[in-house]
């Protein structure tokens, strides 16, 4: 199965590299969000519940924008499941002796790696915000972003497998995946928001991933607890979504 996963993963990367619009969507959009929302709101709003860390809203929003990049890559990667079905590629995979699990793993690994590559490019902007990151922090951020990209792609895969149209997937993206990000503390700290929103943020697993990255970038001492919690949750969700994907794709 390893060879099949490798071949399908290579395909994911080649397809991404050859579709320039995906680069723009996955990297350009989060960058614009960060600059326009971060720059636009930065001078207009004071953020209650944010006593330590970044000194500007642009700085606060930076980890959230990085996660938006990971989320967008996961979304675009899994839209390709629907395209694969329409283009016929999927039936070719499903009528080969390779277990469908290879497809699940390749999609999730592909989404995670591509998300990491783009998040890495965004992370390179960090010094412009006055952040001086140690090698350990950069590596820890990469691990966290990879794991987050893995399960976010798994979540996208779940919806894409169930849906038959790209338009339908956009609906899910707008009502499930984007709110997941909005209510993760990526755009505003939950401390000052309405109580129901605070609860939504607490129940949202992405909140802990975003908090882990925020802590890695902004806390003075290495945030073992926040990072460890984010990583553990991410690994748990990854395992769960691999199993769900395996079950879904094996059912003919």
């Amino acid at each position: 199965m390893n060879a099949a996963v490798g071949a399908l993963l290579k395909r994911e990367i080649l397809r991404f590299a050859r579709q320039r619009s995906r680069w723009i969507g996955a990297l350009g959009t989060p960058l614009m969000f960060w600059l326009f929302i971060g720059g636009g709101l930065g001078s207009s709003f004071r953020m209650p519940g944010l006593e330590t860390g970044p000194t500007s809203y642009l700085g606060y929003f930076f980890p959230g924008a990085i996660f938006l990049s990971v989320l967008f890559t996961a979304i675009f990667s899994t839209i390709s499941v629907i395209e694969d079905r329409h283009e016929g590629f999927l039936q070719g995979v499903l009528t080969s002796p390779t277990p469908p699990m290879a497809l699940v793993l390749a999609k999730m690994l592909g989404g995670a790696l591509l998300g990491l590559a783009q998040a890495g490019l965004m992370l390179a902007i960090a010094p412009l915000l006055g952040l001086e990151l140690s090698i350990l922090r950069v590596l820890a951020a990469f691990v966290l972003l990879f794991v987050s990209g893995f399960w976010l792609t798994g979540l996208g895969f779940y919806f894409a497998w169930k849906l038959d149209s790209v338009q339908g997937f956009h609906g899910v993206m707008n009502t499930v995946l984007v709110p997941l990000w909005l209510l993760s503390g990526a755009v505003f700290p939950s401390g000052g928001s309405a109580v129901p929103l605070q609860w939504a943020t607490r129940l949202n697993p992405l909140s802990y991933e975003v908090a882990g990255l925020q802590a890695l970038l902004w806390e003075e001492s290495f945030p073992w607890t926040a990072w460890g919690m984010a990583l553990s949750l991410g690994v748990g969700l990854s395992i769960l979504l691999v199993l769900v994907g395996e079950r879904m794709t094996s059912r003919r």
């Binding site: 099949a4 395909r11 080649l14 397809r15 283009e87 999927l90 070719g92 080969s96 002796p97």
Partner: peptide, 19 residues
Amino acid sequence: SLDPWLSVEENLEIHGRLF
């Protein structure tokens, strides 16, 4: 059931690996 973004050779390579 071919991937339109891949070359003729790449499509065959992936299929071979799946088998």
